[in-house]
Write a protein that binds this DNA or RNA. Structure first.
Lengths: 238, 238
DNA sequence: GGGTCGTGCATAACGTTGTTACAGATATAA
DNA sequence: TTATATCTGTAACAACGTTATGCACGACCC
């Protein structure tokens, strides 16, 4: 495994303990959920003792911070990658769909990042900076719509926040299985999300167009929802 | 304190240990947050040993369940008490405002009920039934609007869910202090919440009326936001 | 009144968690 | 070779939720 040790350590120790630990943590999170994210368990999976987590991440908080940062990188990229729809506020709507798609593909990651899955973890300043990139993508979409004269409000921050809040709330409820009993929770979540986006966008636009259904974009967008991993080179969270 | 013991117990034991424990837990939650909600701490504050929590609530889960139930009772009552605004979807808008008002008045309670403040607590079936009352209030407001012909959608469940998700998302972000840095977080939260409500409502309504600002209702509605307790007889959470 | 039963309770412990003091081991620098 | 800095495993610590054990007391029956 280890090529050449560059730093003093006991014989037989792996050279890239840090990478092993983070990888083990991400794997445990994806496969078994945040309940498996104990220092001892991660250390065992990474092939070192608990000390490794403290040497390389400063403790569990630091490890979760790394997971957080990695997740937000993937999340922000997904938002930025969203191809604008041919509708009013097209980029904003595309990002809203991408928001839920990412969350449904990485539910355990989303829980750590947004749903306090790891108790009372407070992200570091560095992690917060990374996470802001996601919101920035949203703000840019809002500004684009504003520049095109599509918005009926000048309060761009409030518009961005309203969209984020809506997406976050609906996704949170869906991931928490907190929706009220229903014949088909998933279908209701689909409909509610589409309706919320299209209604809010309709409320934001100047012209009074008819509501624009989102079905055709949604369906091919959310084809995969199982939490099983699908690794891609250099981006384990896709 | 204790009037007449009706059940066998050691001499000197208080008669209503169960009430003491729940009261102590609610007080600790309100005063110090969920971090103070340890079995040992609650027992000490209630004047009994840890066993009391197990005897009367079956464990910490049961205790949190009781807090949950109590909170949802207060929450649902607040939604039902909301006086309809003289606007389209007036009852729905009033409930949305009441939603945030309750959350800002009982932030620690809201965190336990909605934000996974107590790790991985899964509510009991009984607690879920109580919590559904809150959603029912929302559904009734939607049905009322539908009966009046104010809605442009027939999917009433999706409408209710969209409103709930929006409110929950924005309030969650606000309570988590997760909003991006800004001059005045609170004012942005105010504006974003009003904008989200009015925009979504505008998207739901058939006629194309101008956006209706919510400021005047909002300001006298949310005058108290500090987490300090203001007890009212028979309803400690107001 | 005396004996039995069941219930509520305190003490003390168990296992698991995050964390750390300590000492040993090793690569690099002098 | 010697010295230093760094990494690591062992073993322990405190705090957490939980529970086995045994005692105290009221209710009940005779």
């Amino acid at each position: 495994m280890s090529s050449v040790s560059r730093i003093a350590r006991p014989a037989g120790a792996d050279d890239d303990t840090k990478a092993n630990i983070l990888e083990a943590a991400l794997r445990l999170l994806a496969d078994e959920g945040h309940g498996a994210l104990t220092v001892r368990r991660v250390a065992t999976e990474a092939g070192c003792s608990t000390i490794g987590v403290y040497t390389w991440f400063g403790g569990k908080d630091g490890l979760v911070d790394a997971i957080w940062t990695q997740g937000f990188g993937s999340f922000a990229a997904a938002l930025r990658r969203a191809k604008p729809l041919e509708l009013p506020l097209g980029r904003l709507q595309a990002q809203a769909l991408a928001y839920r798609r990412w969350a449904l593909r990485h539910p355990r990651h989303y829980r750590v990042m947004f749903l306090n899955a790891v108790v009372d973890h407070v992200p570091s300043d560095a992690a917060i900076v990374v996470s802001l990139a996601a919101f920035t993508a949203l703000q840019e979409a809002v500004r684009e719509a504003s520049d095109r004269g599509e918005l009926n409000s000048d309060d761009l921050d409030a518009v961005a926040m309203a969209m984020w809040g809506m997406a976050h709330g609906l996704v949170s409820i869906e991931l928490a299985d907190a929706a009220p009993p229903c014949v088909d929770q998933r279908k209701l979540a689909d409909r509610a999300y589409d309706l919320a986006i299209s209604s809010m966008v309709r409320g934001f636009t100047k012209e009074r167009s008819a509501a624009q259904p989102l079905d055709r974009w949604r369906h091919d967008a959310v084809e995969t929802t199982s939490p099983t991993r699908q690794r891609v080179a250099n981006d384990p969270t896709n």
